[in-house]
Design a binder for these strands. Structure first.
Length: 876
RNA sequence: GGGGAUAUAGCUCAGCUGGUUAGAGCGCUUCGCUCACAUCGAAGAGGUCGGGGGUUCGAGUCCCUCUAUCCCCACCA
């Protein structure tokens, strides 16, 4: 123990332990005799090959719960979300391809996949390594739970089942198209951002010029695809010309004027140009009015051959040129500035183009109903509760979900087309030939939305559709931890698919957290460059510090800011914990372990054990309620303030004394409290607690499998704890007096404590503490003021008055000021309590307990006031 | 347009089912390197809990309202 350095070296400990844990398999589920399943499922975050703060928060919260549950005797299974079809990994892979000079258009899909798998594993593995540095205990080595094996089967199976039920269909709809990624997107994947654009007003004239109609648009380039102009059926202004034609300016094409309820009479000119191929509302109008669909934009964002003279231009170029041409033709009525919400791709942030396209869709309404019911009926609970509103709001207004993607990464759609007869076959395994005509078939080139497959995570990772042992044992799982930004993408879909495929909820609790922002409260983002690399923080301050700072000081569901100072203070706490252990180990001496004998305990021992009991109960309760921050705060305060600042100091006089029995008792208490404190702290700070725990006598193989501290009835010492608190009050009062009057710390004095007769005995016993902690040379306890030297300083506190004969040090003016301040305080308190007690309805209606407490407070304050006033009188 | 959140010490935030003289960390002031720890210890200053109503014996905590800021969803060209 002598060779323990003075300050804690997290680098050494964390590096050593994480290697050891990996070797010993401690990162994996611990065996447990009770066989109570408890599973935490982790999300497929946007892994970029690099850990970011969002992950760190996610993983930390999950791991805190996992470790706590494990120590409480539950079996835990922590599934990695990192190997799934996460989008950003694909980005990484595409980057890799670019580096190797591979163009994804040039290579065959199968060949690509093979290489991509290899990269995927490499990058995924790197992430898991980083998570382990954070202390996160995930089961990466379960190869069969990876996407290509188990998950693909699950996804295919569910897809086919939904298809057979008619809930998945293929058709031409308006979808969101990302011209950058060249794929369709679901509504959820579109992010709207406000952009300053213009509103162009364009006049469409009658073929013979006898009438005209003006429409406004934010996307003039879509004029190329106009197939009608619409007005409201009851709009008298246009009633006469409905059914007639107008000519599209510049292009010269004639289109009809139609009437549809969708148009609002009072907005703009009351007339709208209709482009069914490029706007969802226009598409609907087109269906109702039987309009042709004319798509003028290609997949990569260029105007196609239907654009005539404009073909080959980008949408942006086309807009500029067409507007100029319309202006030249005299049909541009006006241009006004306009702010408009423009949809962008949540992945690449390119402006998405709504366009008509043949895609696969899920009919969500029938699937949403049971999913809503599961939450409404309380079978699934959101923590904090308010997020169920977000969930309902989305689920109740859900629309068909576009699930096909033209990406390179993902589960391939199990649909097979026959070019000969046009038959489509949907089944899990590829048919050898077309079941209808026997001709060869080809599989759909598209893959599924990553969130479609992620939605099956709770059971696809457990082997579904095979009825594996894991599936039977762990499904339904219990707790899901994720950020609120992922509720729609993932949580809602898991609930839907869980109920659909398994007939059971996937988990019973969704613990929702906020996002980590930078010091200014801004979202961390690549473009701002304000992201903070968790690994750098770990390197500098340690994983334990990072974890603790992420868990403490903020409540569930709320965003948090990342502060370097906060991590620093967590680091300081590590050092504190380390040094407290160092102190205990240095003093345990040879032989180590000592039995805790209740009969030998001193007042201070009983106090700290009593407090330990309370903290164990409260922290356990907080953890069960998912109030992780409250648990962390209580454990922190207990260790730092009560154990380190008070108990260790209280222990010293007896530890350094010559009474062997006393020493043994103190050592036993120190050991017990420290051991339990390490266990309580372990979920929050896994590395340092493991390290220190293993050094303690009586430690088991690892703290991870140690039992969570329990409430111990034998440690209930309310009376002694109360006396101890009183003594602490006395010590504080003396310290205050010494500090305020600038009494030199070295100046020790013979003090006299005057207190009520019933406290004399206990206070006498505790006098060694006053000597040690308040700088007393000797302490006398008595019920009256006999024998106290004239003009001694006096410190007044709730249960006693302490006299200190340091007459020569007295500065009358200062002392008067100090006492006046205290008098003020006491008077305030008396006024408050009297006010309450003189209120008849308070006395009549408030609970007995509260009234008694108020009377007690009043009593104490009055006692203090009279002593203080008397003292003031003595000072003249 | 619909839904939600937040407003508490200089800063960042806690405060569980209404009852403490309203807490923490950082910052600030004054002391102190006493043999676990200066990544420390001791003492202290600092808040009419956004404004206004209401319920209650009692409200930071419940209800209404106003103001400010933020988020999500939907979206009228």
């Amino acid at each position: 123990m002598q060779d323990m350095p003075k300050s804690y070296d997290h680098t050494d400990v964390e590096t050593r332990l994480y290697q050891k844990w990996e070797q010993n398999g401690y990162f994996h589920a611990a065996p447990n005799p009770h066989k109570q399943p408890y599973t935490i499922v982790i999300p497929p975050p946007n892994i970029t090959g690099k850990l970011h703060m969002g992950h760190a928060l996610d993983e930390t919260l999950q791991d805190v719960l996992t470790r706590y549950k494990r120590m409480s005797g539950y079996e835990t299974l922590w599934l990695p979300g990192t190997d799934h079809a996460s989008i950003a990994t694909e980005v990484k892979i595409v980057e890799q391809m670019a580096k190797e000079g591979i163009d994804k258009r040039d290579i065959g899909r199968e060949a690509f996949l093979e290489r991509a798998w290899a990269w995927k594993k490499e990058y995924g593995g790197a992430i898991v390594g980083q998570l382990k540095k954070l202390g996160a205990s995930c089961d990466w080595d379960r190869e069969r739970f990876t996407m290509d094996e188990g998950c693909n089967k699950a996804v295919t199976k569910v897809f086919c089942e939904l298809y057979d039920k008619g809930l998945i269909y293929r058709g031409d709809r308006i979808i969101n198209w990302c011209p950058e990624c060249k794929t369709a997107l679901s509504d959820a994947e579109v992010e709207y951002e406000e952009q300053d654009t213009s509103l162009w007003h364009v006049r469409y004239d009658a073929p013979d010029g006898s009438y005209s109609i003006t429409v406004a648009t934010t996307r003039p380039e879509t004029i190329l695809g106009d197939t009608a102009v619409a007005v409201h059926p009851e709009d008298e202004r246009y009633a006469a010309i409905v059914g007639k034609n107008v000519v599209i300016p510049v292009l010269g094409r004639e289109i009809p004027i139609v009437a549809d309820e969708y148009v609002e009479k009072d907005f703009g000119t009351g007339a709208v140009k209709i482009t069914p191929a490029h706007d969802p509302n226009d598409f609907e109008v087109g269906v109702r009015c039987g309009l042709p669909v004319m798509r003028v934009l290609s997949d990569d964002g260029y105007i196609n051959e239907l654009g005539g003279a404009y073909a080959g231009l980008t949408a942006k170029e086309c807009r500029k040129k067409l507007v100029a041409d319309i202006d030249a033709a005299g049909n541009l009525v006006k241009v006004e500035p306009y702010t408009h919400n423009v949809g962008t791709c949540y992945r690449c942030h390119a402006t998405v183009e709504p366009l008509v396209s043949k895609q696969w869709f899920v009919d969500m309404k029938p699937l949403a109903r049971p999913a809503i019911e599961a939450v409404r009926g309380g079978r699934i609970r959101f923590v904090p509760e308010r997020f169920d509103k977000t969930y309902f709001n989305w689920m109740e207004n859900i629309r068909d979900w576009c699930i096909s993607r033209q990406l390179w990464w993902g589960h391939r759609i199990p649909a097979y087309y026959c070019d000969a007869c046009g038959e489509t076959t949907v089944q899990p395994a590829a048919p050898a030939a077309c079941p209808k005509c026997g001709a060869p078939v080809r599989q759909d080139e598209d893959v599924l939305d990553t969130w479609f497959s992620s939605g099956m995570w709770p059971f696809s990772t457990l082997g579904f559709p095979a009825q594996t042992e894991e599936l039977k044992y762990f499904y339904p799982t219990s707790t899901l931890v994720t950020g609120y930004d992922i509720i729609f993408f993932w949580v809602a879909r898991m609930i839907v698919f869980g109920l659909e495929a398994m007939g059971e909820i996937p988990f019973d609790t969704v613990y929702v957290h906020g996002i980590v922002r930078d010091e200014q409260g801004r979202k961390m983002s690549k473009s701002l460059g304000n992201g903070i690399d968790p690994l750098e923080i770990i390197r500098e301050y340690g994983a334990d510090s990072l974890r603790f700072s992420l868990v403490s000081g903020n409540s569930a569901g709320n965003d948090m800011r990342f502060y370097g100072k906060k991590v620093e203070s967590a680091r300081n706490f590590c050092n504190k914990v380390y040094n407290a252990s160092r102190f205990v180990l240095m003093n345990l001496g040879e032989g180590g372990s000592c039995e805790l004998e209740l009969s030998k305990l001193d007042m201070a021992d009983k106090w700290i054990l009593h407090r330990l009991n309370t903290v164990v109960q409260e922290a356990t309760h907080n953890l069960d309620q998912f109030d992780l921050n409250l648990a962390a705060q209580k454990i922190y305060d207990f260790i730092w303030t009560e154990f380190c600042d008070w108990y260790i100091e209280l222990a010293k006089p007896r530890l350094y004394g010559d009474d062997a029995a006393e020493q043994a008792a103190v050592k036993a208490v120190l050991l017990r409290v420290l051991t339990d404190a390490m266990k309580l702290l372990h979920p929050f700070m896994p590395f340092i607690t493991e390290e220190l725990y293993l050094n303690l006598p009586g430690a088991e193989e690892t703290i991870m499998r140690a039992a969570w501290p329990q409430y111990t009835p034998a440690f209930e010492f309310p009376a002694e704890a109360d006396t101890m608190e009183r003594m602490m009050g006395v010590i504080r009062a003396i310290r205050n007096l010494r500090a305020e009057l600038n009494v030199p710390p070295a100046k020790r004095a013979a003090m006299t404590i005057v207190t009520a007769p019933e406290h004399i005995h206990a206070f006498e016993q505790a006098s060694i503490y006053v000597m040690r902690l308040a700088g007393a040379q000797s302490v006398r306890v008595q019920a009256n003021k006999a024998g106290i030297p004239q003009g001694a300083l006096s410190a007044v506190c709730e249960s006693a008055e302490v006299f200190i004969p340091l007459n020569e040090l007295i500065d009358i003016e200062k002392e008067r000021e100090r006492i006046a301040k205290e008098v003020e305080k006491a008077r305030g308190e008396i006024e408050r309590a009297e006010g309450k007690l003189s209120n008849e309805s308070f006395v009549a209606k408030a609970p007995e307990k509260i009234i008694l407490a108020e009377r007690e407070k009043l009593e104490v304050a009055r006692g203090m006031l009279s002593k203080l006033e008397q003292r003031l009188g003595e000072l003249g």
